[in-house]
Every structure is written in C-alpha cells, then in structure tokens.
Computed example of a mutant assay.
Amino acid sequence: MFTRKTLAALTISSALAVTPAAYAAKMITVANFFPDTHPNSIALKETFKNEVESLSKGELKVKVFSNGVLGAEEKLYNSVRGGTVNMAILGTIMDKEVQNVGIIQLPFLFKNYEHAQNALNSDIGQKLVNDMDTNTGLHFLAYGVQGFRVVASNREISSMDDFQGLRLRFPGISSMIEIGKNLGANITPLPISDVFSALEQGVVDGVENPYPNIVASKWYEIVKYITETNHVFTPNLYLMNNNFWNSLTKEQQQVVSTAAQNAAKQEWSLLIKQESENKAKLEQDGVKITVPDKAFHDALIKAEESAYENYYTLHPDARDIVKEIIAAGEK
C-alpha cells in the first residue's frame, strides 16, 4: 500500500527521470537568398545544421530557408533585425549603419581569395564589424564568401568604351552604385530576385555578380558575354538576431559560433572549387569569357580611384584599415 509520502517521492523521481529530449528543442530559423545549389546553402544544410543539432545534443534545431523564400536581401536584413528570422546570411547591406563594413567592397581591394580570407579571418575582419551589435542589433558569427564580381552582359566588353550606354543591374548599395557609375554604365538597382526577369524583358543589358550566382541563377541563359573584371570582392556575413543570441546559454552560443565558422570554411572551399567548374560550364554553354588585358585592367582600376577618397570622406577611420588589408596581401 502506497502512503502519501511514497506517492510524493515517486512523483519527484519521475520528474527527475525526464530526459532532455522530452523538452521542446529551441528552433533556429536561418535564411539566405541563394539557390539550393549555392555553396552557402549547401554549407548551411550540411555543416551548420548538422553541427548545431549534434553538438547541442538536440537542445537546438535548425531550419534553413534558402532560395530567397523569405525575401531578398533587404527584407531578410529587416526580418533578422526584427527577430522574425533568427539568423540570416547577408552581404554588406548594413554599410550605412556599420561604420567600416563597407570597406570590404571597395574596388580592387583584394588580390585573390587567399588575401581576402586571411584578412577577414584576422583582427582586421573583426574591426570591420565592431559596432554591428550596437548599431544593428545583430551578432556577427563568421565571414562566408560570394566571390569576386564579374560582368555578364548581352554584348562583349573589351574596353572602357564598351560600358557606355550599357544598362547594368547593381545592388542598391550606395558604394556599389558609385562603382558602377565610375565604369561609365547606366546603373539600375534591383533586388537579386528580379534580375532574371529584368534580363529576359530587356530592362537591363547585364548584371555584375560572382560566377556562382550567375550560374546558380541561370542568367547565362539570357546573356552570353562575361567580362572578368573582378572589380569587387563580396563576402557573406553570418548574422544572428542579438536578442535570440542572448537567449542562448553560453554552451549553446559556443555551439552556434563553432558551427557557423565551420560552415563558412566549407563555403569558401566549395565556392573556390565551383568557380573553375562554373567557368568551364559557361563556356560549354556558349558564353564568351573575356579576361581584360593589362591596359584594360589598369583603366578599370584608374576609373575607380575616386571611390576610395569619397569613402574616406564619410569614413575617416577607413584609411588605416585599408592600409592593413593591402599589407596583408603583401605578406
């Protein structure tokens, strides 16, 4: 016969015996605007999701929304800041709020992928996002990569003169629009999700973006010329809503941070490998790729010189950081 005391003891024992799996796991929603085949989407699903769920022993779950199903970059930026999305992968759309993050996309700043990766994963990279939390309400986790930007167009570009009258889509970021105008093109800012239809309908003559985006978004089906200008390097920033970040335990924060950094490493590796494969595919599909000769390349760099001084006027601390980045590429 059970006494009242025995029943009470059994109740307590039962409560203590409940395993962590009996509690609802905390869900992390992660969104980007890239297709499923893009290195970022692959890295989020193969590395970030798997590592977060395994390392947290089921306390955290991850749901990845790729293909821009939750919106293009501007909408995702607003969503993650507002907390309707916990985490997003963005470019430097926050350059108006974050003092020095726009430095990354100054023209012809990085020599190659090794230079960019080494600089961004050093103390220099942290300087660029020091005020991210304060000014945006977002917690920076890692630097991924979109790549060096090239121009895909409906006509061949082999000199600066060929940019005249060319209607080019550029992202709606002031520094990027300036870079486009310096080339001599007519610039049309559009969300990345609108580019295919704009090319198809002749609203624009071309688009500048890294090779993986050109292939994944199938813009090459419409425009058959690529000029390998490599005028700007574009990163991916892994960013989490700060309130959500602070709701995690220290152990969970470490799990998320480690998984994000490992996903970013996979993304870099995949993108660099994909780029050479993408170029081969494009040529097989009838796309002509033009690599600027020295005279054209020097003219491109000269055309963009004013972008630096204009940037320094608004961001006086940037000059020293740019010097550090350049020095990192000379080591």
Rank of each mutant, 00 (worst) to 15 (best):
M1C: 07
F2M: 13
R4A: 13
R4M: 12
K5M: 01
T6Y: 04
A8C: 01
I12L: 14
I12P: 08
A17I: 13
A17C: 10
A17N: 12
P20Q: 11
A22E: 13
A22W: 12
M27D: 09
M27W: 09
I28M: 03
F34D: 09
D36L: 08
P39E: 06
N40V: 14
S41D: 05
V52F: 07
S56I: 04
K57G: 12
E59A: 14
K61M: 04
K61T: 13
N67Q: 10
V69I: 15
L70Q: 10
E73W: 04
K75Q: 06
Y77A: 07
V80C: 01
G83W: 01
G83Q: 01
T84C: 01
V85A: 06
L90H: 00
G91P: 05
D95Y: 13
N100G: 03
V101S: 05
V101L: 13
V101D: 06
Q105F: 10
K111V: 05
Y113G: 05
E114V: 05
A119W: 00
A119L: 01
D123I: 04
M132H: 11
M132V: 13
T134G: 09
A142Y: 04
G144F: 13
Q146D: 15
G147C: 10
R149V: 03
V151M: 10
A152E: 13
M160D: 09
D161P: 14
Q164R: 14
G172T: 09
S175F: 13
S175A: 14
A185L: 09
T188N: 08
P189G: 03
F196S: 08
F196E: 04
A198T: 05
Q201A: 10
V203F: 06
V207A: 04
E221I: 07
E221L: 07
H231A: 14
V232A: 10
Y238Q: 07
L239D: 02
N242A: 00
N246H: 11
V255K: 05
V255R: 00
V256S: 04
T258Y: 02
A259V: 08
A260R: 05
A260L: 04
N262M: 12
A263K: 05
K265L: 13
Q266V: 15
E267K: 15
E267I: 15
W268R: 15
W268Q: 15
L270F: 15
I272Y: 02
K273R: 15
S276K: 12
K288V: 09
P292W: 02
D298L: 04
L300T: 05
I301W: 02
A307Q: 05
A307P: 08
E309L: 06
N310C: 06
P316E: 03
P316K: 01
A318D: 05
I321R: 13
V322G: 02
I326S: 01
I326N: 00
A328E: 11
G329D: 03
K331P: 01
